[in-house]
Amino acid sequence: MDWYFPTELKEVPPLLKKEGLAPHGGGTGLLRTGLSRLKGLVDLSGLHLDAIEENNGSIILGSSSTYSMICRTLMQKDPGSILPKALSMSASTPLRNRITLGGSIASFPIWSDLMGPLIALGSQVNLLKETETKHPVEYISGNRELLKGSLITGIEYKKEWPLSWYHRHTRVAFDYPLFTLTILLKIEAGRIADSRIVVIGTRNRFTRIYELETLLAGRSADSPDPVDLMEKMPELEFPERKTASSGQLNCLLKVWLRRGIREITGGERT
């Protein structure tokens, strides 16, 4: 296997065009999926893709930013942001120090702590192939062939969701979540103006619960009454697991949705 250490972005597209070459960020994802199919790795560490910036109300995250870097920086640049809430609980300290944003988007595991928040935030992914293009992360997640031969250079999202809530459903602290739940809310004049509700871990990896977003719109932020909403919640399809049936996960999801909506609108955290 060959290693390439580009120092300029323009060197990367021709490399990734070659058969069997993959980008190397932190390496944690590559080591899990295995290296045997690969002919070479393009190490991204010389490209300085780890900047985290704020520009015109948008946050721009370089793809080599690790979870730890994102948590540390965003706590200052975007306090209240969903991303540190989600990523600070993900995996473990030594892994958060190594897992990169780009690698996580590219591999999108079913237990991802990153993708729920990114989808909910409406993030755009910056891709470099021959040219630079931008795509909504939700679109990329459904059209993963876009990533082939491309380099994820970073993402950006607008700082427009001051209210956020995150739950990862695990057995112990250091665990794959069985599902994650991201809720973002905008409240205007005492009413819920807009919301994003995303579940990771369903059969299609992620599900945005549009039905619920619609139902929430316009409700009083004081008493969004999640109980009646839950009756209208669609059953989500989870992959069958030995440890938890789809029925059980739906039941749990509803519990956490109710709690999330209650807490994000000002109720007590349980």
């Binding site: 473990s92 057995r171 112990v172 602290a173 250091f174 794959y176």
Partner: peptide
């Protein structure tokens, strides 16, 4: 990863 035993936060 799947046989879960306690770590410090637990």
């Amino acid at each position: 990863w799947d046989y879960k035993i306690f770590t410090a936060p637990d």
